[in-house]
Measured scan of single mutants.
Amino acid sequence: SEEKKKAKERLERLGASSELARELLDRANGNAEKAERLLRKLL
C-alpha cells in the first residue's frame, strides 16, 4: 500500500536498511509509528 511504502521510506531515512525497514513494519503489523519506535530503540 502507499502508506506502507511511505513508512518504509521514512524508516530508511532514519537509518534502517531496506531489509530492516521491511522487518520492522512486519513486526509492527504495518503500524508506521510502532515500527519507528522499534527502530529508535535499535539505533
Rank of each mutant, 00 (worst) to 15 (best):
A7T: 07
E9G: 07
A35F: 04
K4P: 09
R10Q: 07
L25A: 05
L42V: 08
L24Q: 01
E9S: 09
N29S: 09
A28C: 14
R27F: 11
A32P: 10
L24D: 00
S1L: 12
K8G: 08
L42E: 07
A32D: 05
N31H: 06
A32N: 04
D26F: 06
R13W: 11
R13Q: 12
E9D: 10
L38E: 14
S17V: 03
G30E: 03
K6C: 08
A16N: 02
E12T: 09
R13G: 09
N31L: 05
R37T: 09
S18H: 08
L25I: 08
E2S: 11
K6I: 12
L38F: 03
N29Q: 11
E23N: 08
G30C: 06
E3N: 11
L25F: 03
G30W: 08
R40F: 05
L14T: 01
R13D: 07
D26M: 07
D26H: 08
L39A: 02
L25W: 02
A7K: 08
E2P: 10
E23I: 14
L42R: 03
L11H: 01
A16E: 01
R40P: 03
D26S: 08
A21T: 03
A35N: 02
G30I: 02
G30P: 00
L24V: 05
R10E: 05
A28Y: 12
L39S: 00
G30R: 01
S17K: 03
L38C: 09
E9K: 09
G30N: 08
A32H: 06
G30V: 01
E9I: 09
E9M: 04
S17G: 06
L25Y: 03
S18C: 08
G30Y: 05
L24Y: 03
L20D: 02
E3F: 04
K5V: 13
L20I: 07
N31F: 04
R22N: 14
G15F: 04
S17Q: 03
K41N: 14
E12L: 08
E33H: 09
E19M: 06
R22F: 09
E36M: 07
E23Y: 08
K4L: 15
L43E: 05
L39D: 02
L38K: 05
S17L: 05
A7H: 08
E12R: 08
L14Y: 03
R37M: 11
L42N: 02
R40Y: 06
R22P: 01
G30F: 04
K6W: 06
L24P: 00
A21C: 03
K8M: 15
G30S: 04
S17E: 03
R40G: 10
L42C: 12
L11C: 02
L20M: 09
E19D: 12
K34P: 01
E23W: 07
R10T: 07
E36L: 11
L20A: 04
S18P: 15
E12C: 11
R37F: 05
E36P: 00
G15Q: 02
R37Q: 15
K34W: 14
R40T: 10
S18Y: 02
A35K: 01
L24E: 00
S18L: 06
S17R: 03
A16Y: 00
E3T: 12
K8W: 15
K6P: 07
R22E: 15
L25D: 01
R13Y: 10
A16S: 03
A28Q: 02
N29H: 12
N29I: 04
S17I: 04
R40V: 13
R22K: 14
G15P: 01
K4Q: 14
E2H: 11
D26A: 11
S18R: 09
S18T: 08
S1H: 13
L11Q: 00
A21E: 01
A21K: 00
L11W: 04
L14K: 04
L11I: 04
L38A: 12
E36D: 04
K41S: 12
L43Q: 11
R37N: 14
K41I: 14
E23M: 09
A7G: 09
R13S: 13
L25V: 08
S1V: 13
L39H: 00
E36H: 03
L42F: 08
N29A: 09
A21L: 06
L39Q: 00
K41A: 13
K41L: 13
L14P: 00
L20P: 00
K6L: 12
A32W: 13
S17Y: 04
L14E: 02
K5F: 08
L39T: 00
S1F: 13
R40I: 14
L25G: 02
A32L: 15
K6R: 13
E19F: 02
N31I: 06
L39E: 02
R10A: 08
